[in-house]
Design a protein around this nucleic acid. Structure first.
Length: 422
RNA sequence: GGAGGGAUGGCAGAGUGGACGAUUGCGGCGGUCUUGAAAACCGUUGUGGGCCGAAGGUCCCACCGGGGGUUCGAAUCCCUCUCCCUCCGCCA
């Protein structure tokens, strides 16, 4: 959510910024509703002030007969207030609804572009391995080594499900445990184990609703929503709180399963374990002061890159242009790693500075010092990293001519000393 | 799943229809005293919105878990939702 006062005062700037996102937003409607709301409030508050006064007067009269005409009059005023309240409620509901459909605005450092073709590759790190044989994709390696079972996954749950088996399951678990330890011990994050199912409100706060309703699983019976990312519960961790400035930045890292309906990408990436309905992810999240959020953004990107570096897998960092920013980010980087079997750069992390967009929705604030008025925090999130795709990268980059897979050095302590999957 | 009790300011805890945005205590902040500190004493201490304004305002409105209702008037009465606690049942 944007600051309504800002839209009121600088509508042209807001409109221009949104245009670069290739998204439309109901700015005119918001301006009209805001105007309407304030004029209604003026009207109803005058009536309320009068009723408060007269009601006290009636109280003082202690049931004397001269109170009766006043009561009659206040009954009328009460009706008017009720009617106006209803109008205010209507207008506010429409205003809120419109505000929830306004995307975040891009930071000035974000390149203007129409779509993903205008994203900017900022840097590429690591040497692409030279193969003296034809590297296989993971969907061939996995079944041959009996560590991925596609058929039985589909038998149980349908398309986009699979089973990891034996050292395949172990390798994913090793990656998760190692990543968590890395971020906790080397990068200063606090580990969180959040709920995987949340109430609807959490999705409004983090910006998944109303825009991405179609991508979220919902349990109608209990009204639970299955998270598509740990960002959702982590954003809501401090919802409604006023934090002390000296605890900021708060840095959290969480492992969760993630669930996505993938209605938007039906038919895309159906092969292998690139895009499933259920996947694991390690997610970094920060609550910061406004002035430090862009420094923290760079740190999160670097933390994500560290995972690729330490695994010894080439990666690159891509800066999203305005047209590919999405709904909530003010600035976003993707980290992609090279997969020689799939022959593509796979997105394994998306790192965003959301500024105060989620904080306004969730009323997440901080106080600079005692007595100071609360201000909104900035929130940032970034994968560190997404699991199945990192698993793909390990399998494909570390494959040997005989089809076996060498376990990266850093993971061996987490693999019970296993050095090669064969 | 059944039965009961509860939700009030940073915390604890009063308040069961009108002078209550809310007694009091603790904590915090400022002050007096003191070489300094403690104690004691005095003062102060929430959030959001509106209006006017350059800063600001002895201005107005709302907020006692959320939503609705009764009433001239609701923290207080009624309905409902959420959450917490106690007991019973079931259970990884």
């Amino acid at each position: 959510m944007l600051d309504l006062k800002w839209i009121r005062e600088k509508p042209e700037q807001v409109r221009a910024a949104i245009a670069t996102l290739q998204i439309t937003a109901p700015i005119d409607e918001i301006l009209a509703l805001d105007e309407q709301r304030r004029s209604l409030l003026c009207e109803v508050e005058v009536l309320r002030a009068r009723r408060n006064k007269v009601s006290k007067e009636i109280g003082r009269l202690r049931g004397a007969p001269e109170a009766e005409p006043l009561k009659d009059e206040m009954r009328q005023v009460g009706q008017q207030i009720k009617a106006l309240d209803q109008q205010v409620k209507d207008v506010e509901a429409r205003l809120h609804d419109a505000m929830m459909n306004v995307p975040n605005l891009p930071h000035e450092s974000v390149p203007v572009g129409v779509d993903e073709s205008e994203n900017v590759v900022l840097r590429t790190e690591g040497e692409l391995r030279l193969f003296d044989f034809e590297p296989l994709p993971h969907w061939d390696l996995g079944p041959t080594l009996d560590i991925i079972d596609f058929e039985r996954g589909v038998k149980m749950s349908g398309t986009r499900f699979y089973v990891l088996k034996g050292l395949g399951a172990r390798l994913q678990r090793a990656l998760i445990a190692w990543m968590l330890d890395l971020h906790v011990q080397q990068h200063g994050y606090t580990e969180i184990y959040p709920p995987f199912m949340v109430r609807e409100e959490c999705l409004w706060v983090d910006g998944k609703l109303p825009k991405f309703r179609g991508n979220v699983y919902h349990d109608a019976e209990e009204d639970f929503w299955w998270i598509g990312t740990a960002e959702t519960p982590l954003t809501n961790l401090h919802r409604g709180e006023i934090l002390a400035a000296d605890v900021l930045p708060l840095s959290y890292v969480a492992y969760t399963a993630c669930f996505r309906r993938e209605k938007m990408s039906a038919g895309r990436d159906v092969r292998g374990i690139k895009r499933g309905h259920q996947f694991d992810k390690v997610e970094m999240f920060k609550f910061t002061t406004p002035e430090s959020s862009y420094d923290e953004l760079e740190k999160i990107v670097d933390n994500a890159e560290d995972v690729a570096r330490l695994l010894g897998i080439p990666h690159r960092v891509v800066l999203m242009c305005t047209g590919d920013l999405g709904f909530v980010a003010a600035k976003k980087y993707d980290v992609e790693i090279w997969t020689p079997g799939c022959q593509e750069w796979l997105e394994v992390s998306s790192v965003s500075n959301v500024e105060a967009f989620q904080a306004r929705r969730g009323n997440i604030r901080f106080r600079r010092e005692r007595g100071a008025r609360p201000e909104y925090v900035h929130t940032l999130n970034g994968s560190g990293l997404a699991l199945p795709r990192t698993l793909i990268a390990v399998m494909e980059n570390y494959q040997q001519p005989d089809g076996s897979i060498v376990v990266p050095e850093v993971l061996r302590p987490y693999m019970g000393g296993v050095g090669v999957i064969r």
